[in-house]
Amino acid sequence: MLKINEAIKEDLALATDIVRFDHVTKRYPGKVALRDATFTLPRGKVIGLIGPNGSGKSTVLKLMAGLLRASGGTVAINGKPATRRIGGEVAYLSELDALYSSFTIEETIRLHQGLYEDFNQEKAHEMLAFMQLNPGDRVKNLSKGNRGRLKIVLALSRRAALILMDEPLSGLDPIVRESIIKGMISFIDLETQTVIMTTHEVAEIEPVLDLVVAIRDGQVLKVEEIDNIRGELNMSLVEWMKQTLA
């Protein structure tokens, strides 16, 4: 009887958890980027991954995106192991400018349309209008802010179950950041999607988050609900962050 219950629990967990890290370690020659990380993340939430520079946030995200492979332990996305080809179910917004600069915005959208089955071209054009981007512009001629906006459009035009964003707001001015945040809220579908983002703009992003994961020096310290932080612990996210990451 106990065994059946465990199996059902396991199934339920798989059904509700979009991400599962099981004793994940990531080693590079001469450095350990992530140490024995074990946690699960639920679906349908906006999750913030916060921590100082070099703490391993990008590593965690890239492990989820299949761009890195764990040295030890397993990474499961949607119940499946994260391989390089998990890109069919995971949208990844890189911190780097990983766009093909000679393409126009329209050409970039058509490229994504052709590669991803879950790409919604109408939504993409809707978002372009929202962000006030001109499809005929060439990527290399876009301002930094507009490139940031385009990256969000590409990520959110996909119906992927998991959307990963690595520093989507970094280096952008407040107006652009606001439009990206509003764009995110407008176009995300939390009934079918989960968003995980790393960011330094903790105070700005707090109202948008459901859950926060604190990481420092390659170790995942805590996974906490925003409501608990304010409700029970009575502090803002910034204060909690200072306390947890001290």
């Binding site: 349908g44 906006v46 509003k182 809220i185 407008s186 939390l190 109202p207 988050l209 459901d210 409501d227």
Partner: peptide, 17 residues
């Protein structure tokens, strides 16, 4: 819910709540 969330720059789940 979504409009309210966008206007206030908060998570739609929060508005739901």
């Amino acid at each position: 819910v979504r409009d309210f969330a966008v206007r206030n720059s908060v998570n739609p789940n929060t508005v739901q709540r």
